[in-house]
Design a protein around this nucleic acid. Structure first.
Lengths: 198, 198, 198, 198
DNA sequence: GATGAATGAGCTTTCATTCAT
DNA sequence: AATGAATGAAAGCTCATTCAT
């Protein structure tokens, strides 16, 4: 038990370190020795925890998915209106992008970009399942309550994730006129208007 | 003249071939020898046309930007209502994604993801300038006509591009329930609802 | 300690192997894979010891400079007359050229010729500092004792090194009528006559 | 006749252009396309005049040798004393190094350094034969006149060429305290003292 | 478990040389 | 003679992965 927990701790250490490097420099520009050095272990030993660089990236993806899912779940569990929930989700997303940018950046710069890395092992949405599920729960409940229009889930999911991801990208490119959080109101309103029932 | 055109033809051949490979496998997983082989020339000769792999990617980006800009310009020049224009843009985007998927995929998988490749030579939005400008023209005119709500351009741009890009990504992941073009109505409506004036 | 010594041993192995190849074939005609193969290691591993081909050449230069400096220092520390010291230096130089020809050849064929290789890292005479210093000590002391004529150091240094280098070059070209060591007397006398005080 | 002369003119053009580039950048860092461009012709056509890069370098060497030989011959033909002739030769050498540095630099940076280039085609002193011969004539006559000590020719030749080459090298390294021509007196005296009869 | 030296395949890029025009 | 596009071998260097210790 203690042994397992120790191993888990180390795995966690690796995941967090690698996440930061991957998000900053991209998948291919980050080397295993760099990751190992960054967290103070040998590259050989790293292979005792993750059998390949690709698999490590996949585990990181699951980790982020779980993390974001937990945040969304809190919102789902609350008694907010759907409109308020949308704003809460946007907030969570942008706050994460500012306080833990590696999480969102990994999504945009590694997952979205290097599809070949996730082709074997993360088919479909396997590795982001938890996160997608929470968004789905949010959407289904809102539709059931009659607050959002009933439509294909992915029409809504694509809007949500594409929009938020796009804004973070533009922010990273430094072309936005305002700070990311200053867009929260506009964007929440836009999303709500797009999805609300007539 | 004939000479120039011959060289231009070859450049074009390279751009189109490289575009397909980059879009499918990503920037780093595509090698110069692969590109050369794919279009039936030697890798040495390829360097007579593009002096580096990065520069090749940048030229491709400009090419796509120009191509999409031309399509959007046609819509801008038409006498459609803003709502109809939105639908026309969505159509163009999805049709392109289906008939020439490499164009959109390059945007998503290479440009969006491998920022370091475009840092020197495509600062800001230089290389996608034509495309962004047309979207901006569409938006400004629609606001001027009072058909869309006046708001920060990037709030609208992020919605448009993020949403459409997100849908193409999901389509590529083969998780969608319908063909991409079957989403056109839903998505156009959502975008219009999000942006229309009150 | 043992570990350090092991790494040092390997560095030494590389330096000696590379020295031989560089001296025989020149800097550019010698490839890293050739060096690696010559000393029985992989070219990848060689980069664990020297981070570039240029840096390897610079380390070799320092190594030779230190080696020759040590020999000259012995002569400087002796109680020989200046005339005898000149002969001793010529002897050392020619003996080295015969027993370890790569040392002198590297000087002539790599250092002297491929200045661009040493531009960054061996500015001025940094990398041959030890050797030049010993020659300078010899000259200054001989002048102080009144045995050699007082003149610009480089007039004497150029004579010494140019002359000896030139002879080794001619020997390498196999145009000399006698073995190198058979020239020792003539050349020592010539140098002494050129530099002695009136 | 006209045809031959035209061809000769072009050969000469190539030799002079290539000489400048080789002397400045070295043999390996100079490419055939660079040479072709420098003299305003195509690289393909250059091969109509010289069948390989190595052979071009060898022809250049012969050209320099002939040029310097002509200068030395003038001195040999004069009625100067041996001591004055030595000074005249030193002057010629240093003046050439200053007014046409490419000539001397080619000797030092290409011929002396890249032996492998001259191994096949310039064995022994074949390609510098004219030049060496003139120096030999000077030396033999001076010995015959009893002005210089009788010794192995190469003892004297090595002194001459090594010394002068060494000084030009040091000058190029910018370590000398004076301009090259300011060393003429010292060096001529040193050489004369070294070689004069007792 | 932990280390880091070692491997070797593979990358981008260069360039002497050829050859169709 | 002249062009310059084309070839293709080879270079320096990187890095995921392995393995002896």
């Amino acid at each position: 038990m203690i042994d397992t927990s120790k191993k888990e701790q180390k795995r966690s250490l690796i995941i967090n370190g690698a996440l930061k490097l991957f998000a900053t420099k991209g998948f291919y520009a980050t080397t295993i020795p760099q990751i190992a050095k960054f967290i103070g272990m040998s590259s050989g030993n790293l292979y005792n925890y993750f059998s390949s660089k690709e698999l490590l990236a996949q585990e990181i993806l699951k980790y982020i998915s779980a993390h974001l899912a937990k945040e969304i779940r809190k919102i789902n569990d609350s008694s907010l209106s759907s409109q308020e929930k949308i704003k809460a989700i946007v907030k969570i997303y942008f706050n994460t992008a500012q306080s833990q940018p590696e999480m969102i950046d990994f999504f945009l710069r590694v997952y979205l970009s290097n599809r070949e890395v996730f082709r074997k092992g993360c088919e479909g949405m396997i590795c982001v399942n938890e996160f997608v599920t929470e968004i789905m729960i949010f959407f289904d409940e809102a539709v059931a309550k009659g607050e959002l229009k009933n439509q294909d889930f992915f029409s809504a999911f694509g809007l949500f994730m594409g929009y938020l991801g796009g804004m973070v990208f533009l922010n990273g490119e430094e072309v936005l006129n305002k700070r990311l959080d200053e867009y929260i109101d506009d964007i929440s309103t836009n999303i709500y208007n797009a999805l609300k029932s007539d």
